[in-house]
């Protein structure tokens, strides 16, 4: 095993893409259901709650994976400001994927609602009944959702920037190990790539 891997572990990559789909879906489901009076409000909410709790469980696992397996280092030549932005936005994403479902659960508890994940599956309340707490948490649920969406947009833009413009292996580090790597096989090796990928010439 090499000291500096060039990819996220299989567990990290799997969790990343699975949760990317789930979280983006949750954002669309969330804003879609509160903006309609049709039956969509009901069936989207019926998906929203169990899917949100599933995200909470996966986020806990993901955080553990992240703490046990540090990610591959960013390219050495990446400007310090971009490194900082990458680091800060990743931790913001972790924070929000844990906070959003907890706030959703807590706000329903505070509102005195039974937290139903299905016809009869009910979670216990995690917050005492309080209209004041309900209002604060419910607004926080919206504000954090908007922050999560903006962070996701920036994250997606940055990933594409790494993949299409810098071509420095950062994007590939989240792809399956079998996928072609920009450095290896006759494709042009660019200056930016070299910094990250030459550090890890191992096969996995």
């Amino acid at each position: 095993m090499n000291a500096t891997p060039d990819r996220f572990t299989l567990a990290a990559r799997t969790l990343h893409w699975l949760m990317a789909v789930m979280i983006v879906a949750m954002l669309f489901i969330g804003v879609g259901m509160v903006a309609t009076v049709s039956a969509r409000h009901e069936w989207l909410l019926a998906i929203h709650k169990p899917l949100g709790i599933a995200i909470l469980l996966l986020a806990v696992i993901r955080l553990a994976v992240r703490l046990r397996h540090p990610p591959p280092p960013l390219p050495a030549d990446l400007p310090a400001l971009q490194k900082l932005a990458a680091l800060a936005s990743h931790w913001l994403l972790y924070f929000l994927m844990l906070a959003m479902p907890l706030i959703g659960w807590a706000m329903l508890s505070a509102g005195g609602y039974p937290v139903m994940l299905g016809d009869s599956l009910r979670l216990p309340p995690i917050f005492p009944t309080s209209p004041v707490a309900f209002a604060v948490l419910r607004h926080l649920h919206t504000a954090f959702a908007m922050l999560l969406f903006l962070t996701f947009l920036a994250h997606m833009g940055a990933a594409l920037y790494h993949g299409l413009i810098r071509r420095d292996g950062v994007f590939a580090s989240m792809l399956p190990a079998a996928s072609p790597r920009v450095d290896g096989d006759g494709e042009e090796v660019d200056a930016d790539n070299a910094g990250r990928l030459s550090a890890a010439p191992q096969d996995d």
Binding site: M33, V34, T36, V37, S38, A39, R40, H41, E42, G111, P131, V132, F134, A135, R138, H139
Partner: peptide
């Protein structure tokens, strides 16, 4: 569903 959605909005306003 319209009742459910509108009551939630009203509830948020008054709380």
């Amino acid at each position: 569903p319209a009742r459910s959605a509108a009551y939630a909005d009203s509830y948020l306003r008054r709380t």
